[in-house]
Design a binder for these strands. Structure first.
Length: 273
DNA sequence: CGGTGGACCTGCTGGC
DNA sequence: TGCCAGCAGGTCCACC
């Protein structure tokens, strides 16, 4: 489900709803990718106020006062809701945090690829679990020059390379295809074969696509919803993702789909080479 | 170390 | 109408 724009949208919504709220109870309802230590969570969280919500890569960090936090990843189908405790539980609710005042923060995840866990904050200001991640794509350090160097000698397809979270974070299957189309780069080209001009265009395209998608609240293709249940809007701006056989918006050629690393890639065989 | 492919899960859709 | 293959926005691990 969620790539950087979707996670960013969720973080913004949680950031409006949660800070100042005190956690007074934690319930683990079962079946998550990572086991949830309910006793530890109660000890770390109960009686503590949420002070902020931030994003690193596709991870969500919910900070509490003191050296503790909740670390979450939405996987493919994870989502948070903040609603009154009187609202009925959803089928796939996994963890419920009771907040003083009667609301609950609920994490639900049908496919269980995501998780929420209590986490400590390390000396770098982030949970230790987040070490080893690549550069944030909207920061200045993510540049064509840096990517040209990073990709030297790499033979994997450029589409897989830009989805490698150890290289650059936040780019997933939708925005990889969209950014490559915008930069007119064939997703099948070996990453190490791109020249400086290619990388300048591709990096600019990634930034542009992600920024626009953030402005539109992410893409809702099927599952994704923000915290209040509303949909994103960027699905209306997609040029190639999910559009095999349709006309390329730039040249009218039929958009092609190929499998790369077990994922579907969409591109225009005429514009992208 | 780098590249590839499968595993992990459930739910929905499209074709027969 | 009903069934089933195939596919889904992510990550991790084993194997070459």
């Amino acid at each position: 489900m969620p790539e950087l724009p979707e996670v960013e949208t969720v973080v913004k919504a949680l950031g409006l709803a949660l800070p100042g709220r005190e956690v007074i109870g934690v319930r683990f309802l079962g079946a998550m990718r990572l086991p949830f230590d309910e006793a530890l969570a109660r000890r770390l969280l109960r009686g503590r106020a949420i002070v902020g919500v931030r994003r690193r890569a596709k991870y969500i960090v919910i900070d509490l006062d003191g050296p503790s936090a909740l670390l979450a990843h939405l996987g493919m189908t994870g989502h948070f809701r903040v609603e009154a405790e009187s609202e009925p539980r959803a089928r796939h609710d996994r963890v419920v945090f009771s907040l003083r005042g009667g609301d609950e923060l609920r994490y639900a995840d049908a496919r269980r690829f995501g998780f929420v866990v209590p986490a400590g904050i390390g000396p770098d200001g982030w949970p230790a679990e987040l070490s080893g991640l690549g550069v944030e794509p909207l920061e200045r350090a993510f540049s064509g020059r840096a990517m040209l160097d990073r990709a030297a000698g790499r033979s994997c397809p450029v589409k897989n390379f830009i989805m490698d979270q150890a290289v650059v974070v936040g780019v997933g299957n939708i925005y990889a295809s969209e950014a490559l189309w915008g930069a007119r780069v064939d997703p099948r080209r070996p990453a190490g074969d791109l020249d400086g001009g290619d990388w300048d265009r591709l990096v600019a395209s990634i930034k542009k696509v992600l920024r626009k998608a953030i402005r539109q609240g992410g893409s809702t293709i099927r599952n994704y919803r923000t915290v209040d249940g509303s949909e994103g809007g960027f699905q209306r701006s997609l040029n190639v993702y999910g559009k095999a056989g349709e006309a390329c918006p730039a040249c009218g050629s039929a958009i092609m789909m190929v499998r790369q690393g077990g994922r579907s890639s969409f591109f225009c065989p005429k514009c992208q080479d």
